[in-house]
Simulated scan of single mutants.
Amino acid sequence: MPVRKQLTAGDWTSAALAALARGGIAAVAVEPIAASLGTTKGSFYWHFSSRDALLEAALRLWERTETDDVIALVETEPDMRRRLRMLLAVALGAGIELPGARVELALQSSADHPLVAPVLARITTRRLDYLAAMFAELGFPPDEARQRSLLAYTAYLGHAQLAHATPGAAPSGVALPAYVDSVIATLTAR
């Protein structure tokens, strides 16, 4: 009999995040995730007390990888204009495949769910504040920096929706860098 790999809470959390990206919170179901991992529900209960605990772990993973880790990555760029460009490029998937936009869109229909709402609010606030600080560092007054952060964030969300609903209409592949440059030029124009 083959030896099965011992699953960790992280394995379950990653699988739940993938399910979330595919089908929203309804897809975070123990039995289908167990089947995708080649295990039983018993393994799940070894690591989590409930489906909600798994959903919370998946949301924390999404927040860490799609907000905290992305901010840490772009912070390595010392030039603010290039940092802003890097942030938009990463968010739109240029060169790095992140499931974040798919998760974000999948969560929109559940934005009022008691586990989802505070996470979306916290992440949105953090992202907008980070963007506003970037625009302020580029020399824009606080109110204008905030407005530009909203425009940048809605450009990201709009691109994600367009790429999801009508993939052929959204810039991708070799066209994406020129699109990112155009968006950055628009966002930083005086």
Rank of each mutant, 00 (worst) to 15 (best):
A132D: 13
A91G: 08
D69E: 15
P167Y: 04
L73N: 03
V28C: 12
A152K: 01
A121W: 01
I25N: 01
L87N: 02
V180G: 02
R127P: 00
A58K: 01
R51A: 09
I184R: 00
L120K: 10
T186W: 12
L20E: 01
P99H: 07
L87V: 05
A175E: 14
R83G: 02
L162D: 04
R127Y: 00
G10I: 00
G158S: 03
R83H: 03
M80P: 15
E31D: 14
A18E: 10
A189V: 13
Y179D: 08
R102W: 02
L138A: 15
G23E: 03
G42C: 04
P78S: 11
L128N: 15
A15G: 03
R60C: 01
A26W: 00
V28L: 06
L98C: 02
E144V: 15
L187I: 05
A21P: 00
A91E: 07
T188G: 13
E66T: 07
A165Y: 04
R146M: 07
A132P: 14
G139Y: 09
F44H: 15
D68R: 12
T125G: 11
P32Q: 06
A178N: 02
T76H: 12
T154V: 02
G23M: 03
R85W: 08
M134D: 04
E104I: 02
I184E: 03
L107H: 10
M86L: 14
L131W: 14
A9G: 15
G100C: 06
P171C: 10
A26P: 05
V30H: 05
R83C: 00
I123A: 09
V116I: 11
R148Y: 08
S49F: 00
A145I: 05
S14G: 03
L131C: 11
G158V: 02
E31M: 09
Y179M: 10
S182L: 06
A175I: 05
M86A: 11
A170C: 01
E56N: 01
A34H: 07
H164C: 02
L92I: 06
P32S: 05
L128V: 13
V28E: 08
R102Y: 03
S110D: 13
L150A: 03
I71A: 07
E144T: 15
G93F: 03
L61C: 02
V183M: 08
P99R: 04
G95F: 07
I123D: 14
R122A: 13
R82L: 11
P141I: 01
L55H: 05
M80Q: 14
G158H: 02
G24H: 02
L92C: 13
A132M: 11
Y179F: 15
A163S: 14
G24I: 01
A136S: 15
S149K: 04
Q161M: 11
I96L: 10
E63D: 11
V180H: 04
L73H: 11
D129F: 02
Y45W: 10
R60S: 08
T8I: 04
L150R: 13
A175S: 10
L59Q: 11
T124D: 13
G168S: 08
G158K: 01
L7N: 05
A170E: 09
G158R: 00
T125D: 04
F44C: 06
F44M: 07
L176K: 12
T67N: 03
T39S: 15
V90S: 05
E97L: 01
A165L: 10
T186V: 09
D68F: 05
A72T: 06
E97D: 13
E63Y: 07
L98E: 10
P171K: 06
R146E: 13
